[in-house]
């Protein structure tokens, strides 16, 4: 390590390796984005050239906006993601509070029961989940997706949040109890604000898999009016395979919102991943 500090050659090699890998990571995204703004001819003739005055074209985006209901898909994805996150955070925090704050019979068992779902993927139960949603009439509604993602997110949320809640000082809570505050007020006014960083971590962990999921939208909510953006772009691209402008534009439109979310939340996400919350 110290030898690397002394030798500029090593530093150079390290930057070289990292730059090479960064290029590999970004190249496909870059190619899709630049070509979505070009005419069909130029897409094929000069796939790696940036769009210029001559090759610039929005024809793909026009097709996408005309043919696909991308605003509706986007809205559906947004509703599903936000609602699931809200439920995961609220119910997860409540359960984590109960498990970390009170001693009662079955506490440990309940914790283990809730932790089961961390390792076992919810997809295994798909056949019966579809049964359940059909019999409750929730199939082809956004509620079906919201419930599934809430159930999927809860185990890890409870696990992470109860770890953090154990660190909240007992004196603070006892002082509040002496002042006559109810347990609900203590949870809402004292504990929740104190674990806000952990809540953010849980939210960011859950956000990306929910937004990107293809399996459950495909199975539980394939109808046009409840399609999520991921499923919507999948179906759209499948239908327009030969229209390269439309396909590239649809891909770019699916990339941009995620990229935007990432730019906003990347610090939170990386802090969460590196803080050891998932050990």
């Amino acid at each position: 390590m110290s030898s690397a500090r002394k030798r500029p050659f090593n530093t150079l090699a390290m930057h070289g390796a990292l730059i090479l890998y960064t290029l590999i990571a970004l190249f496909p995204v870059f190619v899709i984005l630049i070509n979505s703004f070009k005419t069909r001819k130029k897409i094929f003739r000069e796939p790696l050239a940036l769009p210029d005055a001559e090759s610039f074209s929005l024809v793909g985006y026009q097709t996408v906006l005309k043919q696909g209901d991308f605003f509706l898909y986007f809205q559906n994805s947004l509703i599903v993601t936000v609602a699931s996150l809200a439920l995961v955070l609220l119910f997860g925090a409540m359960a984590a509070f109960a498990l970390s704050e009170y001693r009662f019979r079955g506490n440990l068992l309940m914790g283990l029961y809730l932790a089961l779902g961390i390792m076992i993927p919810i997809r295994i139960g798909t056949v019966a989940i579809l049964d359940l949603m059909v019999s409750t009439g929730l199939v082809n509604t956004l509620w079906a997706l919201i419930l599934v993602y809430t159930a999927q997110g809860l185990p890890l949320a409870v696990f992470i949040l109860s770890e953090f809640m154990r660190q909240v000082s007992n004196d603070l809570k006892d002082a509040a109890r002496i002042d006559g505050l109810s347990e609900y007020t203590i949870f809402g006014r004292i504990v929740l604000p104190l674990v806000r960083p952990a809540l953010a971590t849980v939210a960011v962990f859950n956000m990306i898999p929910i937004w990107n999921d293809l399996w459950f939208p495909l199975i539980l909510a394939p109808a046009e009016e409840v399609k999520t953006l991921t499923l919507g772009s999948q179906v759209f691209i499948g239908q327009f395979v030969t229209d390269w402008n439309a396909v590239l534009s649809a891909l770019s439109m699916a990339i941009l919102p995620v990229l935007l979310l990432y730019v906003i939340f990347s610090r939170q996400l990386i802090r969460g991943l590196t803080s050891g919350a998932v050990k």
Binding site: A95, L116, I124, G125, A151
Partner: peptide, 17 residues
């Protein structure tokens, strides 16, 4: 505090499994 999480988790994940 426990009920909502346990109910949803049981009904939508463990029971279907």
């Amino acid at each position: 505090f426990l009920a909502p999480a346990v109910l949803i988790y049981t009904a939508v994940m463990i029971f279907p499994l």
